[in-house]
Amino acid sequence: MSSVSRTTTTALGVQRDGGMTFKQRRQLRNLVRYAILTVLIVFALFPVLWIVSASFNPLQSMASQSLIPNVSDPALLFKNYTDLLGNPDRYPFFRWLLNSTLVASVTAIGIVMITAPAAYAFSRFNFKGRRNLLLFMLLVQVFPNLLAMVSIFLMLQQLGVYIPFIGFNTPGGLILVYIGGAMGTNIWLMKGFFDSIPRELDEAALVDGATILQTYIRIILPAARPILIVIGVLSFVGIFNEFVLARVLLRDKESWTLMVGLYVNFVSSNFANQWGLFAAGAVIGMLPTLIVYLVLQDQIASGTTAGAVKG
């Protein structure tokens, strides 16, 4: 491609004759670009730096914080972290972390295990009512289940009387609601990917005498492994960070997830004085998501744009 046609592919890059040379214009444009992007980066990163800095401020209160932690004794640098992690009675932080990890892992695994066969059937079988079922799944997702939080709360209270492990205030109940709520979207997402796996693959296996189940397990699942992992990981992160339903459905300190614990314990009361503790918890709590997003940013970008371009 020539340099002219490359610049014309950009929306702002349509050329017009001005007083400047091509090179000067490009330099000016780059200057403007870098200036704006730098301002934006400050906007984007400042809160993050601020909370990281707060987590290393040994005095815990917001009043004493400066952007560069003022620490004479390096041993005090991690005081918030040791205070937060060393008081399991006051702040059962590990418990919350464990709850979040447990709920998010089981949900992610459950979503993949339950949606994959459904998506496979939608992708490969041609049966009566298939289209209407797919449309129905799409329609249902118009109403996210947090809108029904009142009735979900009541339902789990009622169910919990008879089946304690999926009742109100249990991780089981929360997982049930999460898996159910994500079903429609994930089936669509996964079906789209299964559609892109060549049918010749499974037809060849069937001709060789494999059953449909064998084809699914030995051919389709291995071929779909990348998307299964992405959907699993994104579900994990999404559930790990979920706040609304977890707050509605978990009552006791011991059963809170990390997000609920951080909010109720440090924000609801005495916020400014527990700032350092919250910051330490926040830094730990944001790590899994941050890592996943930065590692998977290309997949996430292409995933979101795929939806955009199709829509």
């Binding site: 706040f243 951080l262 997003y293």
Partner: peptide
């Protein structure tokens, strides 16, 4: 620039709440 998207919303919002805190 993606970083804000990669942080749990609750943590981000509470951080902003702290930055807007009236006294400190």
């Amino acid at each position: 620039l993606i970083v804000p998207y990669a942080i749990p919303a609750l943590i981000s919002v509470v951080t902003w709440r702290g930055m807007f805190q009236p006294q400190f």
